[in-house]
Design a protein around this nucleic acid. Sequence first.
DNA 1: GCGGAAGTTTAGCCTGAGCTAACTATTTTG
DNA 2: CAAAATAGTTAGCTCAGGCTAAACTTCCGC
Lengths: 146, 146
Amino acid sequence: MPTKRQETTAHVHSPAIEDYLEQIHNLIEAKGYARVVDIAKNLRISQASVTNMIQRLDAEGYVIYERYRGVIMTDAGRKIGQEIARRHEVLTRLLASFGLDPQTVHEDVEGMEHHISRQTLEVLTLLMEELEGNPELLMKLKRQLG
Amino acid sequence: MPTKRQETTAHVHSPAIEDYLEQIHNLIEAKGYARVVDIAKNLRISQASVTNMIQRLDAEGYVIYERYRGVIMTDAGRKIGQEIARRHEVLTRLLASFGLDPQTVHEDVEGMEHHISRQTLEVLTLLMEELEGNPELLMKLKRQLG
DNA sequence: GCGGAAGTTTAGCCTGAGCTAACTATTTTG
DNA sequence: CAAAATAGTTAGCTCAGGCTAAACTTCCGC
């Protein structure tokens, strides 16, 4: 893997970090708080790994963490969490509109969501909106999918 | 042995492996052979890392490797290399048709190409073809991009 | 208000995939 | 055809991000 060389300037974050922040963001949206055990369950990794990463997220300024007490997000963390959630939603709606099986959609979205620039997100949003507002076109394309 | 169906190109290989096989495939297409030094240059990693990985690719049956003599691809390796190259091409054409800057296209494609299922590839191919055959629609969408 | 269940943290380990430095092999060229 | 340049390899590191086992905290029912 051509690992992105660490930019000295604006700090770049890994897919893993994005996954955690997206998850924490979603949990806080949904239940008002984010527990280690739930993050671990949703990401399907061990609780120990979550604790570990949360400490890193705190050190890097994405969350504020107090031992045994849970996390809250900083503005920086929330921003990233929201961005990823947005990419997730657009991709999911776009693919789902073609009737792909939900499991496949989920897997592809999980994989792709970390790699989409602002510009590409705009393109995909546009495509999604066009298809949602133009059922004729969508039907035509779906017919071609066989 | 009970029958274990494994039809859907199971993700048994890493993104890194796909990157190498895509690159080796492209080089062989273009020049008839793939040298360590060129693979390293294209993936922007060290030659030592390439040698290392090539040995793994041989061990896992994707290429045949002879010390100091270069690599050739097995059928398994070629299949993956072609698949990734195909995903690469579809994504590139789709995004480029909206006039996104080539550097951005390239980065996004590099990131996304490893995560696209057969079904999603079909959807994206369809969208690409529709836009290429329907300049009206493409123009309309591009106008909306601002 | 205490004891066990549930949740969290620590310690120590592993693997993938990069790196550099030093060496070896091959190719090119004066 | 030998020596310099180029290409390839090996050894030994690093780092991210997983893991398990065991220890520690918190919470809840009795």
